[in-house]
């Protein structure tokens, strides 16, 4: 049995009181490995946990790695949601950002998935990419919308330290859209997606009615989840903890029958409340005041009245009868609001 499966089994007793409602296979390119590993892992999960309420099983797929045999295997393993990492339909851009797939790979993959009966497909897109202008982005969006995909994630490019892109950026090799254009791209996209009946239910996520990603909602509602594998994160028993990111340490611990956890952060009530608000603001539905009251047994005004007023005044958030949500401007500057919710 693989070490990943050993890790999963180690949680059997620990999580005997929990029921599993969603599974997400992602991080790296799970579609590039032999389907037998996916099958075995899922079988193990089904054996280990209470899956009577399981209703969403997602796998992340790189369009360049898919074939019909894989799709059939996924289907047989109980996977019912697909997340396709497209980023852009412009092949020059795809090359610049180092993707192995082409726009054609994407269309082929998508049609195969539909033919094999997948009715819940997400497409990951990006804006603010090197060489991307507004028409290029809109072109990609329109074509994806025309496919009637069920869900779209649209991320602004973040240049992270230590990446190849950052290196190019520092050397002035990237033709990036300026800040104003980058924001224009985002807001134009919001409009376009809305016109086409995609609900903007989280900062970067859009879905057809009823097709929200239930798994990701767990994160944003600060509900418990377990992550397994290298460098995965979990939120359970008032703790956030994470696994080793080095394979050698991970393997060694598993082989000694020890959970491969590298570190943890205790989430006390103050932090839980802060997380609830910070993550809640990412959602279109916002922070639900009644739910807050019910969950924390106090009114949101106790801690945050001043902050709410301040940011309503700044036009970064809107206060409704039972919710607090980001404004359009707040969507651009959400960190300014969220920082004030930190304990």
């Amino acid at each position: 049995m693989s070490n990943l499966n050993k890790e999963i089994s180690m949680y059997k007793d620990i999580l005997s009181d929990f029921t599993l409602s969603t599974i997400f296979i992602g991080g790296g390119t799970p579609s590039s490995i032999d389907t037998v590993y996916i099958e075995k892992t899922l079988e193990n999960v089904y054996r280990t946990f209470d899956i009577r309420k399981l209703n969403e099983v997602t796998i992340e797929i790189n369009p360049g790695t898919l074939n019909r045999q894989k799709i059939k295997s996924y289907k047989d393993s109980g996977i019912n949601r697909i997340s396709l990492g497209l980023q852009s339909l412009n092949d020059n851009i795809l090359k610049t950002i180092g993707r192995i797939h082409s726009s054609k790979d994407f269309f082929d993959s998508f049609h195969m998935l539909r033919e094999e009966g997948f009715h819940n497909i997400n497409v990951d897109l990006m804006f603010g990419l090197p060489g991307q202008d507004l028409p290029t982005l809109e072109n990609t969006l329109i074509k994806v919308i025309d496919l009637d995909v069920d869900h779209i994630s649209l991320y602004g490019l973040i240049i992270e330290n230590g990446t190849l892109i950052k290196n190019w950026y520092d050397r002035g090799l990237l033709d990036l859209p300026n800040e104003d254009l980058e924001r224009l791209m985002y807001h134009k996209s919001l409009g376009l997606l809305k016109e086409n009946n995609y609900e903007h239910y989280e900062v970067s996520n859009f879905s057809k009615a009823g097709k929200e990603c239930k798994h990701n909602l767990t994160y944003w509602k600060v509900e418990p989840y377990l992550g397994v594998g290298l460098n995965s994160h979990s939120n359970l028993f008032n703790k956030r903890f994470w696994n080793h990111s080095k394979l050698a340490s991970y393997n060694k611990l598993i082989e000694s029958h020890i959970l491969p956890v590298e570190g943890e952060e205790i989430i006390d009530k103050n932090m839980e409340i802060a997380e609830y608000c910070i993550m809640g603001l990412r959602l279109k539905s916002g922070i639900n005041k009644n739910e807050y009251l019910f969950r924390f047994n106090e009114k949101i005004d106790n801690r945050y009245r001043k902050i709410i007023d301040k940011h309503v005044h700044n036009n970064l958030i809107k206060e409704n009868y039972n919710s607090i949500t980001l404004t359009n401007k707040g969507l651009d500057l959400s960190n300014l609001v969220e920082v004030d919710f930190m304990p």
């Binding site: 980058e182 970067s204 994160h233 956030r240 997380e275 910070i278 960190n335």
Partner: peptide, 21 residues
């Protein structure tokens, strides 16, 4: 300031985001 937002915020991103905040 035109933009101060974290586009991706899933499981492992939360700890990182909190550090930033």
């Amino acid at each position: 300031l035109r933009k101060d937002v974290l586009a991706k915020c899933y499981g492992g991103d939360i700890s990182r985001k909190k550090k930033l905040l």
